[in-house]
């Protein structure tokens, strides 16, 4: 029977952060004033040692003003381990991520836009961090939440042209130790995204065609060690670098896409950790306008 503490990083595919123009992170998603963007994701991932993870995150962005936007990430799903007689399964709602983003600097020119936007918020403890199996408290990959209010800060950048675009972010989630002496290790991550619009091959001079693009995304995670029952777990935390490739189709009101996630580096602390093999993702995104209560538009700053 594998040590539950050895069950590792497959669930590091944090559902909350999966969304956006980039699929694996939502921080650089453009949102206009009074506009709502809703993204539904399906993210199954499979690993060695029969650790399977299915997540169904929903991301919502709302533009309060042209520069200030609010985001929410609602996660739900389940993770299972199927190894002989040892078959823990846990699921339900995960922690909810709420944050605000302010566009500090932007350049808009014909066919090009560049933005820098710091963000800050928190993960609300809507998930569960008390899942036990055979009397033992389970590790991060089998818990759905941290049990604490986790501050979250970062900065996002975006540079977009008609054919190519690139986004990046750096974020930090501080996970304090809970009253039950439990803590998922704090998480630092860096994300990068490059996108090429390959269809239509020749963009029509007039009109608004459907656009297909291929997207490459890199995610680097650096996680501190977990606290389990007041003890710093030696078999937790570490560094992971993943690369994703997705195909996407977008129109005026929606975007749909899917792809694969390949872990290129999994430098995990401890011994006998289960490593992720491959992950998949699909998403559907829909844009909505919000009711407007303002009487007049604000001038562009």
């Amino acid at each position: 029977m594998p040590n539950p503490l050895r069950v590792a990083a497959a669930a590091f595919i944090l559902p909350i952060t999966a969304a956006a123009s980039a699929v694996t992170f939502a921080t650089s998603l453009p949102v206009g004033q009074d506009q709502v963007i809703i993204r539904f994701n399906l993210q199954p991932s499979f690993s060695t040692h029969q650790l399977n993870n299915f997540q169904f995150p929903v991301s919502v962005g709302y533009g309060v003003t042209t520069k200030f936007a609010l985001f929410a990430g609602f996660s739900q799903g389940f993770t299972s381990l199927n190894s002989g007689a040892y078959r823990p399964l846990n699921g339900g709602a995960g922690d909810t991520n709420l944050y605000a983003r302010y566009t500090l600097y932007k350049i808009d020119k014909p066919g090009v836009t560049f933005r820098i936007a710091p963000l800050a918020g928190a993960f609300l403890p809507t998930g569960d961090n008390r899942f036990t199996f055979q009397g033992k408290l389970q590790s991060k990959s089998l818990q759905t939440g941290s049990g604490t209010l986790d501050p979250y800060v970062g900065v996002a950048l975006g540079l977009q042209y008609h054919r190519v675009s690139a986004n990046a972010d750096a974020t930090y989630r501080y996970n304090p130790v809970s009253a039950t002496n439990f803590s998922l290790g704090s998480e630092m991550r860096f994300d990068g995204h490059f996108e090429y619009k390959f269809w239509p091959f020749h963009m029509p001079a007039e009109g608004l065609p459907h656009v297909a693009n291929i997207s490459l995304e890199s995610n680097y995670f650096r996680d501190s060690r977990d606290h389990l029952s007041g003890i710093v777990s030696a078999n937790s935390g570490g560094r992971i670098f993943r690369e994703s490739a997705t195909l996407q189709l977008s129109s005026l009101r929606w975007q749909v896409g899917g792809g694969v996630v390949l872990p290129l580096m999994q430098d995990l602390n401890g011994t006998g950790r289960t490593t992720q093999k491959i992950g998949y993702m699909m998403f559907f995104e829909y844009y909505l306008a919000m009711p407007v209560w303002r009487k007049s538009a604000r001038r562009h700053a």
Binding site: A205, P209, V211
Partner: peptide
């Protein structure tokens, strides 16, 4: 600053506020 269909959506949902406009055309 508009490089994708989504950018035009941001504007399209506000076009109804422009008086008397009946048709709009987006050229990406």
């Amino acid at each position: 600053g508009i490089t994708s269909p989504r950018g035009f959506f941001n504007i399209s949902v506000n076009i109804y506020r422009v008086p008397d406009v009946e048709w709009v055309k987006f050229d990406l």
